[in-house]
Amino acid sequence: MTTALVTGATAGIGAAFARRLARDRHDVVLVARDLEALRRQAAELHDRHGVEAAVLAADLSTDDGIAAVEARLSDPESPVDLLVNNAGFGLKGAYLDAPLADELTMLKVHCEAVLRLTTAAAEPMRRRGRGGVVNVASVAAFLPRGTYGASKAWVVQFTEGAARDLAATGVRLMALCPGFVRTEFHRRAGMATDNIPGWMWLDADRVVDTALKDLARGRTVSVPDARYKVLMGAARLAPRGAVGGLSSRAGRKYGPRREG
Rank of each mutant, 00 (worst) to 15 (best):
I66N: 07
P256F: 07
P224V: 14
G65D: 10
A101S: 15
A32Y: 01
L100W: 10
D47R: 14
S138Y: 05
R23A: 15
R145N: 06
L38G: 06
R116M: 14
T210Q: 12
A11C: 05
A120G: 09
A168P: 08
V208S: 02
R249F: 15
S61T: 12
S74H: 03
R39S: 12
R240Q: 06
W201M: 03
G88N: 01
G245V: 06
F158K: 06
M174R: 02
A189K: 02
V28D: 13
V156R: 04
A204C: 05
L30I: 08
G251R: 01
S151F: 03
A42I: 10
F185W: 12
D34W: 00
V69G: 05
L215Y: 11
E70L: 05
A68N: 15
A167D: 13
R240H: 09
A4R: 02
D165E: 14
A121M: 02
V84H: 08
W199H: 14
A15Q: 00
D81E: 10
G149M: 08
T118E: 00
V171M: 00
Y254P: 00
Y228T: 04
H46T: 11
A141W: 04
L82F: 07
F158H: 11
Y95Q: 04
F142S: 14
L246R: 04
Y148V: 06
G241W: 09
L5M: 14
R127E: 13
P99E: 13
A192I: 11
H26R: 15
V207I: 07
F185S: 09
D64L: 15
G179N: 00
W154F: 11
G132S: 09
L96R: 08
R252W: 07
R116A: 09
E52Y: 04
G50S: 01
W201A: 00
L35M: 15
G8L: 05
V207T: 07
R23C: 06
G90K: 01
D63V: 05
C111P: 00
L60I: 10
P224E: 14
G255F: 15
E259K: 02
V6P: 03
C111H: 01
A87I: 03
A15T: 00
V55N: 03
A54R: 09
G146F: 01
S151R: 01
F180D: 15
R40E: 15
L107V: 15
A211C: 04
V109H: 03
L56R: 05
N135R: 03
V208K: 11
V155H: 04
E36D: 12
V114F: 01
K92I: 02
A57T: 04
D64K: 13
F180A: 13
A53G: 06
V84P: 04
P197F: 14
R40C: 08
A204S: 09
T210A: 11
T147M: 00
Q157K: 07
H46W: 12
K253A: 12
T193V: 11
G8E: 09
G131Q: 08
I196P: 06
L73A: 03
R23W: 03
R236S: 11
A140C: 11
F180Q: 08
G170Q: 03
M1V: 15
H186D: 03
G233A: 12
R20S: 10
M191Y: 06
